[in-house]
Write a protein that binds this DNA or RNA. Structure first.
Ligand SMILES: NC(=O)c1ccc[n+]([C@@H]2O[C@H](COP(=O)([O-])OP(=O)(O)OC[C@H]3O[C@@H](n4cnc5c(N)ncnc54)[C@H](O)[C@@H]3O)[C@@H](O)[C@H]2O)c1
Ligand SMILES: NC(=O)c1ccc[n+]([C@@H]2O[C@H](COP(=O)([O-])OP(=O)(O)OC[C@H]3O[C@@H](n4cnc5c(N)ncnc54)[C@H](O)[C@@H]3O)[C@@H](O)[C@H]2O)c1
Lengths: 214, 214
DNA sequence: GCAAATTTGTGATTGTTTTCACAAAGGGCG
DNA sequence: CGCCCTTTGTGAAAACAATCACAAATTTGC
C-alpha cells in the first residue's frame, strides 16, 4: 500500500494559481449577472490574457469541472470556485489603523461585493477616526483588540498602522489567533510560518514602473 | 559580424528582478542612514529572505558592482540601483480620482520618501476633494487633464476612479502621452502594449488569503 | 608581501510554471 | 440515432526561474 498523506491529501497549490482562480471567479460573477450559461477555457483565458491550457490546468488542480465539447457551466464553476477559495461562508476581516489609508479601506464596498465582512476597526485614537470616517463599521480602541477577537473569530487582519507599530501589532493579532494578514505597511514582519502574510507595497509598484519608463 | 540589436542591447529583464532591485535599494537606503559602508550578497539576501546567488544574479543583469572577497559598497551600489530604476531624476506622478482611496494616496509621504513627486490630482468634483484632503498637491478638474500634462511631462498616472470611468480615463492619459499606469481599479484596461500597467487589486489579495485560512 | 579567508560573478543544475498537442468525452445537428 | 465538431483533461516539451558550486579576484591579518 502506498503511503497516503492521511487527510493532508491536498497538495501545495502555488499562490499564482489561487490568484488566477480569484480572477476567474470574478469573471464568472459578471457572466452570471449577464445570464451567460456557459464559457470555454479559451474564452475565459482571453478575457484575462491567459492561455486556455493555463485555465484548464489551474482548474485541474481541484477536480474536473468541465464538459468536453461544451465548456463550463458558469454557475456551476462559480460555485465550485467560491467553495475552493473559502468564500462559501462569510470571511471575517478586521482593520488596524484607521488613518488616511485605513479610512478608505474600512468603507470600501469592493470588500462586501466579494463576500468579505469588515467587522471592526481598531485605532490608537478611535474618536478622531470615527469622526473622519462615515461608515457603519464600529471603530474601537486598539486596547480592545484581544477582547473583541476572543468573542468572535476573525479570519484576516488588514494592517495600516505606522511602520514603527507594525511588528508589535502583528504579534498581537497573531497571539489573538488570526491566521492571515494583509499588510499595507512597507516593512517585513516576523510571524510564525503558519500565518499567511501578503504585502501590498505601493512604492514598490511605482518603482517598477519607473524602471520601464525611464 | 553577428547582428547587433543596435541600441536595443538591453535584454528583457523580468518584472520580478526589478521588484527585487527596488527592495535592495530600500535596504541600502536604510544602511546608508546607519552609516554602514559595505554589505555582502549573503547579508542583503538574508534581510529579504533571498538566496545570495539570487542577489548576485539580479545585479549581474546590469553589470559588475561588487568587489570579490569584500562585498558591495553600500553607497555605490545604491547609486547604481537608483540609476537603473530611473530614480536618478524626479519621477513625476499624477493621480486621477481623489475619492476615498485617492485622498489617502495623494498625501502619502512614502511616495516622496522614495523620490517620487506627486504633481497634481484630477477630479470630477475638485471642490469637494480639495476640502476633504489636507495636502499641498493641487487638485484640478479632470477636464484640465490634457492641458496640464501638455505643459510638463508626466511619467506615471495613478488611477483611482470608479470602475465605470476607468477605460475612458486610461485612454485619455495615454493619449496625453503618459507611458505608465498604476491602476487601483479592479478592472482590466485596454491600452497600447508599449504602455506599462500595474494592477493593485485588494480584493484579490484578500481572496488568496481566504483560500489559505479556510 | 605572502598565505588564508572571503566573496564575487557565472556556467551548470535543478526545480517550477507555462505552453503544446492530442486522445477521449460529450453535445448538437441532421 | 449516429456522426461530426468542439472542447476538455493531461502527459510531454519548452520556457523560465532559482539554486548550486566553484574558479577568479581581492581583502585581511600576520
Ligand atoms: N496613505 C497611503 O496612501 C498609504 C499607501 C501605502 C502604504 N501606506 C502605509 O500605511 C500605513 C498607514 O498610512 P497612513 O497614511 O494611513 O498613515 P496615518 O498616520 O494616517 O494612519 C495611521 C493610523 O494608525 C493609528 N495608530 C498608530 N499607532 C497605532 C496602534 N498601535 N494601534 C492602532 N492604531 C494605531 C494612528 O492613530 C493613525 O490613525 C503606513 O505604514 C504607510 O506607510 C499608506
Ligand atoms: N476605497 C478603497 O479602499 C479601495 C480599495 C481598492 C480599490 N479601490 C478602487 O478605487 C476606486 C476608487 O475607490 P474609492 O473608494 O476612492 O471611490 P470614491 O467614489 O470615493 O472615489 C472615486 C472618485 O473619483 C471621482 N471621479 C468620478 N469620475 C471621475 C472622472 N471621470 N475623472 C476624475 N475623477 C472622477 C469621484 O468624484 C470620486 O471622488 C474604485 O474603482 C475602487 O474599486 C478602492
Amino acid at each position: 500500500m502506498p503511503p497516503t498523506d492521511g487527510e493532508a491529501e491536498r497538495k501545495i497549490i502555488p499562490q499564482a494559481v489561487i490568484k488566477r482562480l480569484s480572477l476567474y471567479s470574478r469573471i464568472l460573477q459578471d457572466l452570471e449577472l449577464e445570464n451567460v450559461e456557459k464559457i470555454s477555457s479559451a474564452d475565459l483565458g482571453r478575457r484575462l490574457g491567459f492561455n486556455s491550457a493555463q485555465v484548464r490546468k489551474d482548474l485541474a488542480c481541484f477536480g474536473q469541472f468541465g464538459v468536453p465539447g461544451f465548456g463550463y457551466y458558469v454557475s456551476d464553476l462559480r460555485k465550485n470556485l467560491r467553495s475552493i477559495l473559502g468564500k462559501d461562508r462569510t470571511v471575517r476581516v478586521i482593520l488596524i489603523g484607521v488613518g488616511n489609508l485605513g479610512s478608505a479601506l474600512i468603507s470600501y464596498h469592493g470588500f462586501t461585493k466579494q463576500g468579505f465582512k469588515m467587522m471592526w476597526g481598531f485605532e490608537a485614537q478611535p474618536e478622531a477616526a470615527t469622526q473622519r470616517v462615515r461608515s457603519e463599521v464600529p471603530i474601537y480602541h486598539v486596547d480592545e483588540l484581544e477582547s473583541k477577537i476572543q468573542g468572535e473569530s476573525v479570519d484576516i487582519a488588514v494592517l495600516a498602522v505606522p511602520a514603527t507599530e507594525i511588528q508589535s501589532i502583528a504579534e498581537r493579532v497573531v497571539a489573538a489567533g488570526v491566521k492571515a494578514i494583509l499588510n499595507f505597511v512597507p516593512a517585513r514582519i516576523e510571524v510564525p510560518e503558519e500565518v499567511q502574510v501578503r504585502y501590498v507595497d505601493l512604492a514598490l509598484e511605482l518603482e517598477s514602473l519607473s524602471y520601464y519608463v525611464r
